[in-house]
């Protein structure tokens, strides 16, 4: 099974990410020259292009090949709520979909392990589920 997670971003959003990651274009150029890491070179070329074309849309995909993913109505409902309701914790998510937090926990763990969601540090050290993609496509 091939799963493609797609995130659509405008050029200026990608530049914001690059700035947070590398500091500046000059710093990225220095990093590439110092390490020879070709991913830095690709990011450098992209940054230069997007700087001149900030409205350009970029489609960023992450492709996973797995045989163990099962997406039932329950998991899809969880993904839908995470994407659209932005719960601040797993407890809040459980409340939103009227489920017990203990029953939702293993599902959240599985979705995180499959790479479909991320658990980021939220308020008061709570784990906040985040779905950073605009599309998930599955090919068999």
């Amino acid at each position: 099974m091939i799963i493609t997670l797609i995130k659509k971003q405008k050029g200026y959003e990608v530049i914001k990410e690059f700035t947070e990651k590398y500091g500046s274009l000059k710093e990225l150029e220095r990093l590439y020259k110092e390490t020879g890491n070709n991913l830095f070179l690709v990011d450098y070329e992209n940054w230069k292009f997007l700087r001149d074309n900030p409205e350009e849309e970029l489609e960023r995909g992450e492709i996973k090949i797995t045989n163990k993913l099962t997406l039932s109505d329950y998991e899809l409902e969880i993904l839908d709520f995470i994407k659209n309701e932005h719960p601040k914790s797993i407890r809040e998510l459980a409340r939103l979909i009227n489920k017990d937090v203990r029953s939702i926990h293993p599902k959240i763990k599985e979705l995180e392990e499959d790479g479909l969601i991320e658990l980021v540090k939220g308020e008061k050290n709570r784990k906040m589920p985040v779905l950073n993609y605009d599309e998930i496509s599955i090919a068999i």
Binding site: L39, E57, R60, G61, E62, I65
Partner: peptide, 22 residues
Amino acid sequence: KKRTENKLKLHGKTINYSMSLK
């Protein structure tokens, strides 16, 4: 599609590929 960027993980390797008009 004008510009795409993809990441594929395979046997512990990451294949990053991107495409643009250029």
